[in-house]
Each structure stands twice: as C-alpha cells, then as structure tokens.
Amino acid sequence: MHADPWEPPAVLLAADLVILTLRGARLHVLLVHRGIDPYQGALALPGGFLRDEHEDIEAAARRELSEEAGLADVHLETLGVYGEPGRDPRGRVVSVAHLAIAPRLPEPTAGTDAADACWMPVEDALSSGVELAFDHARIIADGVERARTKLEYTALATAFCGETFTISELQQVYEAVWGIRLDPRNFYRKVQGSRGFIVAAGPMRRTANGRPARLFRAGPVQALNPPMVRSAHVTPQDGPAAQTAAEGVRQS
C-alpha cells in the first residue's frame, strides 16, 4: 500500500506593524479601526496579508503601513513571528510583526481596509477597557518591551531630543518609554558614566525655573557601555509595581 501523498497545510502569511513614538511626553502606538470583518470596528495594528508568493515580507509591511496609515520612510526591524492556531478566525494565519521606534512622526491617514488611524498612549491601548483585534495586545506589549530594552543598550533616546538638549530633557524620554520615575542625580551619574553617550554642546540654557542648565548633544556611540539598566534606576517612590516590573526585566 502506498501512503497518501502529503499535502502542505493551508497557511496565510501576514505582516503586522508596531509603530511607536513619543507625543506629549507619553509613548504612543499607531492603531487603526478595522473597516472589515473580522473584528470590524475594533482597534488593531496596521497590517495585512502578502499580495502573492512573490512579495517580500518587509515590502508587504511597508505597503500596509502606507496603505493603512499613510506613513513611509521609517526604519523597520523584525519583532517576532506569531502563529498560534486560532489567532485568526479566518484560518491558520502566521504574522511576522515589525517594529519601528521613531521621533516626530506625523498624524496618520487611514486608507484601504482601515476606517480610521490614530496614535494612542500604550498604557491606554493595553488597558482592559480597549478591545484590540486578534492577539495584537500581546504584539504591542512585546514591541514596548523591545523599545524599553533598546533604551538600555543603545543611544536611541537622543533621537527623541532636539539637536541640543539638557539632561532633564533626556531623562523625560527615558521616563516616558520606561514608564517609571527616575532620580535626577542617579540618572545624571549613569548618563555621564556611559562613555560617548552624550557630549557637552555650548553655553548653558535657562530652564523654566530660571536656573541655568548645561546643554548636550548626541555622542558618537550607538551601543551604550555600560548600559542604562532599568532596575538600577528604580527608586522607592516608584512603588512595588514598578520595582517588580524592573526586576522582571532583568530576569527575562
């Protein structure tokens, strides 16, 4: 007897996008309102299926970002692959999620199968009061954690500051992304101890309280040495939740 010939399972491939930026000193994620079923009307990440077997996955991600949100020219990196059975009611769908973390992104413009597009604070997007389609809450949480880690080990935070900035302004970026309050003196010491992270830049600037503040600009390095480890910055006033979160990061 001959065994039945093997047939590959029917699997659809999709690309989803976690686009993060700072707006009003808060970390925001780009979301769209789905204009079609399934989950019509629900909030979701921009994304969609590959057009055909010839389309590159990153090309599909960029096409979806342009079609669903009107955004282009952002640096994308692969975040992860999500393919659990049952994650999409239309069948077996494997999604390759992409991440972008960029400053000063414009207002999105909805198109194709997105009824609307908007920026939403990540803590609101991940709250129990917001219905997200598919497993997009998990994908967003993974993207936020990647962003927080990148601030530990890279000079990404300086991209969200002006050409010159104060230590306080840099600290505000870390606080917005990490979601914790930082002790200014400890933060200043850690930043200055990371070689080539920032360099002095010209005369002092007067702050809102009238005190002069030293100006800096981004330094020559991209990888921080030593890194800005989150757990080292958590202070007692952050409370047990923040302490647990920071400790969990170091154990993961």
Rank of each mutant, 00 (worst) to 15 (best):
G35S: 07
G35N: 04
G35C: 01
D37F: 01
G41S: 11
A42S: 15
F49Q: 12
I57T: 14
E58P: 03
A59N: 08
A60R: 06
A60W: 01
A61N: 08
R62A: 11
R62V: 07
R63Q: 12
E64Y: 12
E64N: 15
L65C: 07
S66C: 07
E67L: 15
E68M: 14
D73C: 04
H75R: 14
T78F: 05
T78N: 11
T78M: 14
P89Y: 04
G91L: 10
G91Y: 09
V93Q: 11
S95G: 01
A97M: 08
L99Q: 02
A100M: 05
R104E: 06
E107M: 09
T112Q: 13
P121T: 00
V122W: 12
V122N: 01
V122S: 06
E123W: 08
D124N: 13
D124I: 13
D124H: 14
D124Y: 03
L126W: 13
S127T: 05
S128M: 08
G129M: 06
G129Y: 05
G129K: 14
E131G: 06
L132E: 06
I139D: 02
I139S: 02
I140R: 12
A141V: 07
V144K: 07
E145L: 11
R146M: 11
A147P: 04
A147L: 09
R148L: 00
L151K: 02
E152Y: 05
E152R: 07
Y153P: 00
T154H: 05
